[in-house]
C-alpha cells in the first residue's frame, strides 16, 4: 500500500506537470458550466414559471453535479489517449504498483477540477446563488461532489482503457451531456410522469444533486421520491460505493493487462 501511495504520488506529479504544459482541455471543461449557467439561468429561467433567481439557485448545484459527471468523458479521453503512448509500455515494465497509473490520473483530475470549480462558484454567487445552510453542511456538500467526480473519472478511465479510442470518448462526451437531462440537475423531478420520475430519480446524478441542494440549503428534499433521492446523502454515498467497487478493480485490471 505504501508502494501504491509512493508510485501514485509520482504519477500524480506527472499528470499535474502535463496539465500545466497543456491546459486546453481543462479550461474548456471548466468554462462550459459557466456558459450553461448563464444560458439556462437567464434564457430558460426567464421562460419558467418560477422566478429567475430562484431557478438559478436551484441550477447551481445541478450544474456542479452535471460537470462532475462529465468526468466520465475526460477520464475516458485521457486514458484512451494514454494507451497510444509508448510511455505506458515503460510504466508497465517498471517495478511499480499496477494501480498507480490510473490512480495518479484520477487524483490529478480531482485536484485540477477542484481548482477549476472556483470560477464557476464565483459566477454562481454573482447570479444569486448562496450557501444558505451551515458551513459544515456546505463542506460536506463539496466533499460529496469530489467523491462523485472521483467515481465518474474511474468509470471513464475504465471505458477509455477498454475502447482505447479518443473518438469514442468524444462521442461519449455527447452522452454524458445527456445524462443530467434525465435527472433533477436542471429540473425538479416532481412534475415528471410516474415512470419517468422513477427513472430520473434512480439516476445517481439526482441523488447527488438533491444532497447538494439539501446541504447548501438551496432546496428541500422532494416528497415521495425514490429511495436514493429521499435519503440523498446516504443514497449518494451508496451510489459512489457501488460504482467504485465495480469500476476501480475493472480499470486496474484492464490497465495491468495491457493493450492485448
Amino acid at each position: 500500500m505504501s508502494a501504491l501511495a509512493y508510485d501514485g504520488a509520482a504519477m500524480l506529479g506527472r499528470q499535474l506537470r502535463r496539465a500545466r504544459n497543456n491546459p486546453g482541455l481543462l479550461i474548456l471543461t471548466q468554462t462550459m458550466p459557466i456558459s450553461m449557467l448563464l444560458f439556462f439561468g437567464y434564457v430558460f429561467g426567464s421562460a419558467l414559471a418560477v422566478p429567475g433567481e430562484e431557478y438559478r439557485r436551484f441550477l447551481v448545484p445541478g450544474l456542479l453535479v452535471a460537470t462532475a459527471a462529465g468526468g466520465i468523458m475526460t477520464g475516458m479521453f485521457q486514458a484512451a489517449q494514454d494507451t497510444h503512448r509508448g510511455v505506458m509500455d515503460r510504466f508497465r515494465t517498471l517495478p511499480m504498483s499496477r494501480a498507480a497509473v490510473p490512480l495518479g490520473q484520477v487524483v490529478a483530475d480531482l485536484v485540477l477540477t477542484a481548482a477549476g470549480t472556483v470560477p464557476f462558484l464565483l459566477v454562481g454567487l454573482a447570479v444569486g446563488w448562496r450557501i444558505e445552510g451551515g458551513a459544515l453542511a456546505a463542506a460536506g456538500a463539496f466533499a460529496l461532489l469530489l467523491l462523485f467526480r472521483f467515481t465518474a473519472v474511474w468509470i471513464g478511465v475504465f471505458l477509455g482503457l477498454l475502447t482505447r479510442s479518443e473518438e469514442a470518448a468524444g462521442q461519449l462526451g455527447g452522452a454524458t451531456f445527456l445524462l443530467p437531462l434525465l435527472s433533477s440537475a436542471y429540473i425538479p423531478t416532481e412534475g415528471l410522469p410516474g415512470w419517468l420520475r422513477t427513472a430520473a430519480e434512480w439516476n445517481p446524478i439526482s441523488a447527488v444533486t438533491t444532497a447538494l441542494r439539501d446541504l447548501f440549503g438551496n432546496a428541500p428534499v422532494p416528497d415521495g421520491a425514490a429511495w436514493p433521492v429521499a435519503h440523498p446523502v446516504a443514497g449518494s454515498l451508496a451510489w459512489c460505493a457501488v460504482l467504485l467497487a465495480v469500476f476501480v478493480p475493472l480499470a486496474v485490471r484492464t490497465y495491468a493487462a495491457g493493450p492485448k
Binding site: A10, R17, R18, N21, R85, V87, M88, D89, R90, L94
Partner: peptide, 23 residues
C-alpha cells in the same frame, strides 16, 4: 520499445526524474 516510451508532454529531465523516482 519501437515507439519512444517517454512522455512527450514532459521535458527530458522530468521524464528521467520520474522514472528514477519510480525505480
Amino acid at each position: 520499445g519501437q515507439y519512444a516510451s517517454v512522455d512527450g508532454d514532459l521535458t527530458g529531465r522530468q521524464n528521467l526524474r520520474l522514472f528514477a523516482r519510480l525505480h
